[in-house]
Design a binder for these strands. Structure first.
Length: 491
RNA sequence: CGGGAUGUAGCGCAGCCCGGUAGCGCACCACGUUCGGGACGUGGGGGUCGCAGGUUCGAAUCCUGUCAUCCCGACCA
């Protein structure tokens, strides 16, 4: 990027922060740990939301909305759940302010203390399951397939734009089923939905896997996840899906009668992805010139920049551009024509590259004469002059090519940075010098996992669902192992 | 909550050591020339120097306190 911004290789972290700000995606708010998502950033998030929501509905889910506040007693009903979240909860203790007796603004009215504190939801399992108790009586009420789009709060000590913020936006699905098999199938189905979304929309290849007990969601029987590899060799969990067993059903006494009249607790699942996906999107593809957006998620797919010397020329160009815009719009391509006089073409070129617009068309007097347009693509930064005739089909094909190319690049990067390692020395060396995913044998104990984490900062990202059976010995303890698991340092 | 740093114009910074009434770049406004890769010239507007005390004839500068932000840890499905 221009103007003294560090490059990816100099300082990935700083590069990321600057990019988020310069590309007008988000900024830190004055509120501790919170983020302001700016209009451009939010428009990308909206595209993600829409695509995900369509996928949820296709798989039979409906949207609903539950309260922001959770009575403290709800949260404590499921023992491991409360333990997992207790350390990062924002708590509402009072319901009224009053004027400061010393005349200095307002103070919390000590007389307005809540009898029972309210927790700002860190996740909604507890409020939702307390509602499900009343919604479910019979097997005829099942499966219950509900999703909500909401904000949640987790009081993180240290935050990073999009990747970890005190408040974030997400989607959380909560389902109830008559059998364990159905609930597991749901859990796996939603994992696949997430993986498909990541790969086909975000152009980010992911590994589907199951978490170790240590990394499991607080209150789940099994936690599944998709793991992506960022350009700096660190892993990012891009989505999770949990099989809850009967844990929440038991905690909230959610039972149903089956066909034979027998009473049983229902089986649950929950799953979610958050604005963290924005972080994944940014980190997976961007380069030193700025953001690189996959066409399927780009708010503006094509920007048109006129090159002119005077109003007369601009008029002629605009006339030609109107035809192009209509042709592109008619095949469903989103276009912006930037004829603003405020900035020069060179400035606009740089600006739209920074914002990751996949395709840029430049059209000037030369093109008017020749019946051509200059087409520049963001992913490869190449440009060529093409005839105006058939431009819509050409661009549509080009957008598909760009989507595919971005994915291929990310996949190639992941493949080049996924290594089988069989000794602890090599493991440490690879982590230190190369990063990436490391496929290694592990003895299956939390103890070993913790030791490795302490010594190397690497965690087991997941046990891949497609991990082949392969007897070996644990790189740390030397004990037998049935298959390799994925290690990495993570965000 | 520990360790380090920083608060000066919308943004990025210099000035502080050695006290003398605030400056640079970008952005902004006006005019002209420019316009196919972040244009140039000339003129102009904008700041109680984070906040509160103190020292001094005089404080952005020295002292004390305080608040905030950032980085490194601890924390983190």
């Amino acid at each position: 990027m221009s103007k003294g911004i560090p490059t990816r290789s100099e300082n990935y972290s700083e590069w990321y922060n600057e990019l988020v700000k310069k590309a007008d995606l988000a900024e830190n708010s004055a509120i501790r740990g919170c983020m302001v998502i700016k209009p451009y950033g939010f428009s990308i998030w909206e595209k993600m939301q829409r695509a995900l929501d369509d996928m949820f509905k296709e798989t039979g889910h409906t949207n609903a909305y539950f309260p922001l506040f959770i009575p403290k007693s709800y949260l404590s009903k499921e023992a491991s759940h409360v333990e997992g979240f207790a350390k990062e909860c924002a708590v509402v203790t009072h319901y009224r302010l009053k004027n400061d007796p010393d005349g200095k603004g307002v103070v919390v009215d000590p007389e307005a203390r809540l009898e029972e504190e309210l927790i700002v939801r860190p996740t909604s399992e507890t409020v939702i399951w307390s509602a499900y108790k009343n919604w479910i009586q019979s097997y005829r009420d099942l499966p219950l397939l509900i999703n909500q789009w909401a904000n949640v709060v987790r009081w993180e000590m240290r935050t990073r734009l999009f990747l970890r913020t005190a408040e974030f936006l997400w989607q959380e699905g909560h389902t109830a089923h008559a059998t364990a098999e159905e609930a597991v199938a749901e859990t796996r189905q939603m994992l696949d939905v997430y993986a498909t979304f990541a790969e086909e929309f975000m152009a980010v290849p992911v590994i589907r896997g199951v978490k170790t007990p240590n990394e499991r969601f607080a209150g789940a029987v099994d936690t599944y996840c998709i793991e992506a590899l960022m350009q700096d060799g660190k892993a990012l969990q891009a989505g999770t899906s949990h099989f809850l067993g009967q844990n929440f059903a038991k905690a909230f006494d959610v039972t149903f009668q089956d066909k034979s009249g027998k009473l049983d607790h229902v089986w649950g699942s929950s799953w979610g992805v958050s604005t963290r996906l924005m972080g994944a999107l940014i980190m997976a593809h961007s380069d030193d010139a700025g953001l690189v957006l996959p066409p399927r998620l780009a708010p503006i797919q094509v920007v048109i920049v006129p090159i002119y010397r005077n109003d007369e020329q601009l008029g002629q160009i605009t006339e030609k551009v109107n035809g192009i815009r209509n042709a592109l719009k008619s095949v469903g391509i989103s276009v912006r024509y930037d004829d603003s006089d405020a900035n020069k073409p060179g400035w606009k070129f740089a600006e739209y590259e920074l914002r990751g617009v996949p395709v840029r068309l430049a059209i000037g007097a030369r093109d008017l004469e020749n019946g051509t347009v200059e087409v520049a693509r963001r992913d490869t930064k190449t440009k060529e002059t093409v005839p105006l005739e058939g431009i819509a089909d050409y661009i549509r094909q080009l957008l598909d090519d760009i989507q595919q190319n971005i994915y291929n690049k990310a996949l190639q990067h992941r493949e080049e940075n996924t290594r089988k390692v069989d000794s602890y020395d090599t493991f440490r060396e690879v982590l230190e010098n190369k990063g990436g995913f490391i496929l290694a044998h592990w003895d299956g104990t939390t103890e070993t996992e913790e030791k490795i984490k302490e010594e190397t900062k690497a965690t087991i990202r997941c046990i891949p669902l497609d991990a082949p059976e392969e007897p070996g010995t644990c790189i740390y303890s030397g004990k037998p192992s049935a298959r390799r698991v994925v290690f990495a340092r993570a965000y």
